[in-house]
Simulated assay, not measured.
Amino acid sequence: MSTTFVSPIDKLWPTERPMLRNVALVLFGTLLLYASAKVQVPFWPVPMTMQTAVVVLIGMAYGWRLGAATVVAYLAEGAVGLPVFVGTPERGIGLAYMVGPTGGYLLGFVAAAAIAGWIVQGGHGLARMALAVTGGILAIFVVGVAWLSVLIGFDNAIVHGVLPFLPSEIAKILFAIAVGVGMFRLRRQA
């Protein structure tokens, strides 16, 4: 017997007009991604943004389809020149920025939201949340390093595109797991 996945958003905001709700959610999600790119937390060895955590949380909250669509909308905003990414407009905007060193990580956001959303469809326990968050963030780094390797070589991509971010990513993984568990507990209570 198969059951239909009900995302936390479906449970907290049921509607007869899902298209209007989904447009509002996509806009809200792109605003969260924008804010998470612009607010930096001092962290060693590089400042931390909350983008990777927000990406996987959007996927888990919205479900894989709407989560991925939200990230695609965010990328489209950036592609047309809105300064929504980390370091924009100072380091460029639009497609020129997106094909730079961070382009692969941005593309990995789509995979991360879809993976995180897809994994939580099968359950909402702590192990499933940990798998969703970790799997989503790993997807970001796999796609990011693949692209960065084209630009600067694999060894340099690891040294500059992974290692400096490990401490902050571990912190964000723990944070996103805790928020994810809380989000699904709230859904059960609604």
Rank of each mutant, 00 (worst) to 15 (best):
A190M: 07
F175R: 09
A68W: 01
I177Y: 04
G108K: 04
K11L: 03
A96H: 11
R185L: 12
V72F: 05
G117Q: 14
A111S: 14
G100K: 13
A113L: 02
V181W: 13
P89D: 05
G92N: 13
S168Q: 05
Y62I: 02
M60P: 06
V142A: 15
I93H: 09
V6C: 06
G125I: 04
R91E: 06
M19P: 07
F165Y: 06
V54C: 02
E169P: 00
D10W: 06
A178M: 12
I152G: 13
Q51I: 12
V99E: 09
W118N: 03
R185S: 11
I177C: 11
A76Q: 07
G92I: 08
H124D: 13
G87E: 01
P45S: 07
P45K: 09
G136L: 01
L107P: 04
M60G: 14
L174F: 15
Q121N: 10
P167T: 01
L151H: 14
L126E: 12
F28M: 14
L106I: 15
S168R: 04
V72M: 08
E77P: 00
A112S: 14
T3Q: 12
I137R: 08
A157N: 15
G29T: 10
F141N: 00
I140E: 04
H160V: 07
L82T: 02
G100T: 11
T4H: 05
A35N: 07
G67C: 09
H160C: 09
T15F: 13
M129K: 06
T3E: 13
S2K: 04
L33C: 10
A171Y: 11
A116Q: 11
L32W: 12
G63N: 13
V159E: 02
A96Y: 09
A53Y: 05
A111L: 15
L66N: 11
G123E: 02
W13H: 10
A53I: 03
Y74E: 00
R91T: 00
H160Y: 15
E169I: 04
Y34V: 01
A132G: 12
L186Q: 08
L12M: 14
L57V: 00
G59R: 13
G136A: 10
L166A: 11
H124R: 14
I9P: 00
G100D: 12
R17E: 14
V72N: 05
Y97Q: 04
L82Y: 00
R91S: 03
V150A: 15
A35V: 07
G87H: 05
Y105P: 00
S168M: 06
A176G: 12
M60Q: 14
F184Q: 01
P18M: 11
F43T: 02
T49G: 08
L32H: 10
A132T: 03
T49Q: 08
I119Q: 03
R128I: 09
L151P: 15
G108I: 13
G144W: 10
V162G: 03
P14I: 02
I115W: 01
V99R: 14
G59E: 01
A114E: 05
A116N: 08
A146E: 08
F85L: 03
V41T: 15
K172S: 08
T52Q: 10
T30G: 07
P42S: 01
Q189H: 07
V41W: 15
L32P: 02
